[in-house]
Design a binder for these strands. Structure first.
Lengths: 114, 114
DNA sequence: TTTGGATACCTAAAAATCTTAGGTATATTG
DNA sequence: CAATATACCTAAGATTTTTAGGTATCCAAA
């Protein structure tokens, strides 16, 4: 698995995008889904995920609904209208980030006179 | 310009890659090069860059040489052997990160029975 | 000539984010 | 019945970055 350093700053983006795609997910489900989809290469820690979900809720981008399953509680999250907008703009920013990284990592050769 | 949140964790990678490509650069030059190459979309702050360069030096990945230009001092940085290896492995990690993000953002549809 | 902007380095406090390392409880499987 | 998986949570510490300075030289324009 790659260094987690690169993940910094992308966690919110991932969560917002997944909720946009799936409609509703609960925290543990997100960790499992990401692990599965990335073929084990990306493992979200709960210590990062849960505070992020709470923060998104406080910011009004997601809303939570508790649901009882057997005797256990699940907290399903879904996007608010503001959350949908945030998800879209985050994804647009991510695309731009990729473009910029590409420009820096694969530079157009500057005129070098040769 | 996109939110800097996405940049978190990529600064070292960028610096190592640029030094690998260019051979030697000084701090201010790095900020200007990145700004130019990204068409103004990415601006590295000096408060982040200089401490990062110092840290890379302490880790033995880069070495600095002071050079007088007029009455002003420049500190040119270049990769050590360990730095070259770090640059390569960082870039490999970054590629893997991109792949993983792609898998999460553009998921292969799971059998949904429809 | 002096003022402002560019060049060129630096640091420290604060904010933001994540890891580590727990805690609690239920469900399932060997 | 013990271990693993499911499912939530928090807090201390580490790391990284922003913000907001500081110092000094160079050059061009007013």
């Amino acid at each position: 698995m790659f260094s987690k350093e690169l993940l910094k700053g992308t966690l919110k983006t991932i969560v917002l995008k997944l909720l946009a795609d799936k409609g509703r997910m609960y925290g543990y489900e997100i960790t499992q889904y990401v692990k599965m989809q990335s073929e084990g290469r990306l493992v979200l820690t709960e210590g990062a995920l849960y505070p992020t979900l709470h923060k998104l809720e406080k910011e009004g981008l997601v809303r939570a609904e508790r649901q009882q399953v057997g005797k256990r509680m699940r907290k399903y999250y879904h996007l608010t209208l503001a959350g949908e907008k945030a998800s879209n703009s985050r994804m647009a920013e991510f695309e731009e980030f990729l473009q910029v990284m590409h420009l820096i990592i694969h530079p157009k050769p500057q005129g070098d006179g040769s």
